[in-house]
Design a protein around this nucleic acid. Sequence first.
DNA 1: CCAGACGTTGTT
DNA 2: GTCTGG
DNA 3: CCAGACGTTGTT
DNA 4: GTCTGG
Length: 229
Amino acid sequence: MCGRYTITTPLESLRNLFDFEGNFNLGARYNVAPTQNAAVVRNAPDGGGRELVMLRWGLVPRWAKELSIGSRMINARTETVASKPSFREAYKKRRCLIPADGYFEWKKKGEIKQPYLLRRRDDAPMAFAGLWENWKVPEANAEAAGQPTGTEITTFTILTTDANETAKPTHHRMPLILEPEFFEAWLTADDPSDTDVMLAVPAVALSSVAVNRRVGSPRNDDPACIEPI
DNA sequence: CCAGACGTTGTT
DNA sequence: GTCTGG
DNA sequence: CCAGACGTTGTT
DNA sequence: GTCTGG
């Protein structure tokens, strides 16, 4: 699956890879967690190229009454995303790329959960396939959401697919990782299931290394999270 | 018809 | 055990 | 994903 | 909003 990831690649390197507009003060993130804001690349609304935006992780469907729904919508299965009521509209029109350079999986070793950091073997940044969605804060949820009624909150989810052999030792389902040659097709295809994007991906070669257990704390976002043990 | 869900993973 | 918050 | 809460009344 | 289960 993919419930935590890292993004430490500098802005200009990301710009070279993803070709987006705009300037950001992007600090290194060693432990991005659901409900936090994170950098996402999508087609600019005016139709002119791509933009980098900060969106909340955990897709809130347009019909949701509460922001907290997003906590359960952090991933979407590649196999079913086209038909699920929560995702299918976003799947048709609102796809995005999530820049990352690694992600975490946990494996139980007796009593303890040991986190592993998975990265590409070529150390290049990764692009997770994702969807984004707009949600308007309703009156009844304004207080819980911490935003005024009517505020637009934009959220995203990360697609998952079956793990390949390189994802050992955890071998959990993994994020759908796109090679650059598929970025354009993923972002713009009228029907992405018509392209080979959805099939092409888990070929990416990953390495995994056991890391410092403090990565488990959601609010912990220091470099120790990626320290091998 | 209405009510209630709407999602994912992994299971020593 | 299950849900919420980060 | 994991960690941490999981409840109520009434108010220095 | 739309689908599923009863």
